[in-house]
Design a protein around this nucleic acid. Structure first.
Lengths: 297, 297
DNA sequence: TGATAATGATCGGTAAAACCTATCATGAGT
DNA sequence: ACTCATGATAGGTTTTACCGATCATTATCA
């Protein structure tokens, strides 16, 4: 059985006339007659009682017709759906973002992206790097914004921009007197870091050569919380530029200073499966983010 | 798009493996790969992300799959329905019957017919001849049990049996003394007949040469009512043998006498469109009825 | 590290099918 | 008697679905 045949059946039932039905199906009348006859043979029953005067569906055909219509409608729905997905810049793109990037970067990206590609629906998922990569592998995400090198098999990435880390310290901190902090000084500070799993944690600890891992009695799952701890005087922290650059004013009670150029920073990347078919959409997102950082990689 | 292609898509989605999906579809793997690729091209989108390690449906495919499954299920339902109709002696047969035949003949036919052809469902429709023929022409009935010649274009019939008319009269009627009534006597009686439209009315009037049409102040729509009128002494009537032969006892207050052989009677026929495809079923019904009347035509 | 196995893609050729044009048979209307 | 309209049929062409064989890539294992 064939969808085309079902369309023929429906057309004949609707027009009650082989010639007009054939015309509606854009085939010749003999073609339609022949195909219908073959279908009837295959089904082992007569679908239409024909005379030279009239064509009337049999009882069996009347029962079959709604099913045939449903099948054809489903097929048409598939075609319509496909039409919607033809544009790689349409449909939903499931984008993972790490927590130290999402709240700061996405608000500035979503607007312009929606403006350029109104049919592209970004579905955001915030989680730490490892979980994002797992979801990416499991096809639960299409792409992910990360700040680490990706050494994952089958996953590739587009570097978007480099950003330096800044030192954030309590107002009273001695280093607040300096315009710029160098690497040596960095190793001397009491460094507060995020909870396990955040890439920023590891990067901050590496930058200040404190592989042990900050104060064990404090736990911050968000960068905002961490900054509040700094403001409360518990210590200092390293924050990526993007997390402070967008602010109207620094967190009250803290002072922010840049590090000596090249001391520490991170590269933000858009990672995705190399087999992901809608690379165009991924590249559009990458381009949109790069546009916000003209000095990027 | 093709139902076969949809089956391929479903198989690949289910097996997540081209080779096994192909096996399940009883085609070679290259065939399935090729067809799937063509479908993807036609739809203008990728349905599966393939690596040498895994085959995963894209988001678009996930949306399409339920539709594809529905379409395939509809097609399968059509095939199943057709399977049920393959046997011409299965499914419903819409049978019209005239009122002076149905209540007397059908009870004796339905049982044996159901026994022989348990899958054949007779759907009965009782009406007068003209209405039955209209419905037959409009394909609202498949066959009709009539007691008149059918001169309808495109309608043919199978004669089933002849039956004589009997004279039914009030107990006190003078003719009740005779064993048999001849044609001449028949013309002398006060004849009660059924309402307009019943073929028995015309046949009775013709038999007693009273074309005018009985007593205008009496109207009977059923033969039973007519017999009651006879019992009440309003006059006599002609009843087909089948309507009194099946009775345990005659209607009380009436006497029934045969006519002289060949005087008046009717031929019961099974009429149907000559294009009706399930002639086998019609013939089965005809045979069943004839079996009850071994002396039939 | 090199052989083996498994994956999906590709190629060339074949068989089936769908299709078209032309024609036929039948019946209705004029 | 003629014309028109119906659906069916015949013959031939084009499309397409299919298979077997083979390839490229990658994972596995000795």
């Amino acid at each position: 059985m064939n969808l085309r045949d079902l369309r023929y059946v429906i057309a004949v039932a609707d027009h009650r006339h082989f010639g007009r039905a054939a015309e509606a199906c854009h085939v010749s009348q003999p073609t339609l007659s022949g195909q219908l006859r073959k279908l009837e043979e295959m089904l082992g029953m007569t679908l239409f009682e024909r005379t030279n005067k009239s064509v009337v569906p049999t009882q069996a055909a009347e029962q079959i017709l709604p099913l045939a219509r449903a099948a054809v409608e489903n097929a048409d729905a598939i075609a319509a759906l496909a039409q919607g997905w033809r544009d790689p810049l349409a449909g939903s793109l499931r984008l993972g973002v790490i927590p130290t990037l999402g709240p700061y970067l996405m608000p500035r990206v979503l607007g312009p992206l929606k403006q350029h590609y109104p049919n592209l629906d970004l579905v955001l998922w915030e989680d730490v790097t490892d979980n994002l990569l797992s979801r990416l592998r499991r096809h639960e995400l299409d792409a992910a914004l990360l700040a680490t090198d990706v050494m994952e098999d089958g996953i590739v990435d587009i570097p978007l921009f480099d950003e330096p880390f800044l030192l954030v310290m309590p107002e009273a901190h001695p280093l607040s007197a300096m315009e710029q902090i160098d690497a040596a000084r960095l190793e001397t500070v009491e460094m507060l870091v995020l909870a396990d799993g955040h890439c920023l944690r590891d990067q901050a600890l590496a930058a200040c050569k404190q592989p042990g891992g900050g104060r064990a009695d404090l736990r911050a799952t968000s960068l905002e919380m961490l900054l509040n701890m700094v403001a409360a005087g518990y210590g200092c922290t390293l924050a990526p530029a993007v997390t402070v650059a967008g602010r109207a004013s620094p967190v009250s009670g803290t002072v922010t200073r840049p590090l000596a150029p090249g001391t520490a920073g991170r590269t933000v990347r858009l990672a995705f499966r190399e087999t992901f078919p809608r690379r165009t959409a991924v590249e559009a997102v990458a381009a949109a983010i790069r546009t916000l950082h003209p000095g990027g990689t």
